[in-house]
Amino acid sequence: MMTFVNLLLAVLLLALAAWTTLARNMFAAVVGFIAYGALLALAWVQLSGIDIALTEAAIGSGLTGLLLLNAASRLHVNANAGGNTGRSRLRVPAALLSAAVSGALMLCVFALPETPPTLAPDVAANLASTEVRNPITAVLLAFRAMDTLLEAIVLLFALIGVWSLSSDPHWGGRPGLRQYSEPNGILAYTARVLPPIGIVVGAYIFWTGADYPGGKFQGATLLAAMWLLVLMAGLADAPPIRRTWLRVALVAGPLAFIAVGFLGLQTAGAFLAYPEGFVKPLIIAIELALLPSLTLVLGLLLLGAPLRGEEP
């Protein structure tokens, strides 16, 4: 029965992937992609990658869904104004290129040795020294902490890239457009009722990350989604990006991470090494510091470049 469900998942994934690439209507392709994200979360659960399933459900289906929906609706506005150009001519080369990339990837997968090189036994053997019980968190914040630090910094660079797309007069202003909704309408109601629940769930996912699947990234995604919900309903407005508190909050997480790294240089003899006995408190401190920064970065990335000045 398990094989049947797995087979079903695989067939559905392939069908949805094919549909998303072949769809003529952009909006239908976006919808297919969102469903694909949800299905991928199911597949990861079946592969016992619950951490990845959480990330996929939050980012792949939720935030990326919003991003693509917005993009499709803006392109729709532009397409009506300007019309479509050069789509059919690019199709064949694009299909060939995609097929070539897929073929190369397939060859790589088949070229893998029968028992791939793995560090999993080493991680399992040393897990106790980190005092956290979720091996994923241990790898991300103890054994490979440098990667996680650089990831957090890359997100900041991405945000700077998005901001730099704004036009000169709007630089430093508020990102996105001011949203309006009926003050007593159902949208405002949704945006008042869901965020408190979402914040509790986000905090829970963050907190449980030390011992069970979860963590700062998934928690931050949920918190960012709730923030965006409030913004979409017009209950609050996005802050102008020149605000000092905003910029301090954005870099506070990575800076705290780097500070802990230098602390390790003093006390444990290596950058990002944790002194004996303080591993778990330090890991939780880093995660706690990264949570607000990641929430802001993810939310602001989705809001896009500043489009208006300081005025609300």
Partner: peptide
């Protein structure tokens, strides 16, 4: 927890 995340974000979409 994954189900909880998916439930929250389906409304969001």
């Amino acid at each position: 927890d994954v189900a909880l995340t998916l439930a929250l974000l389906s409304a969001f979409v």
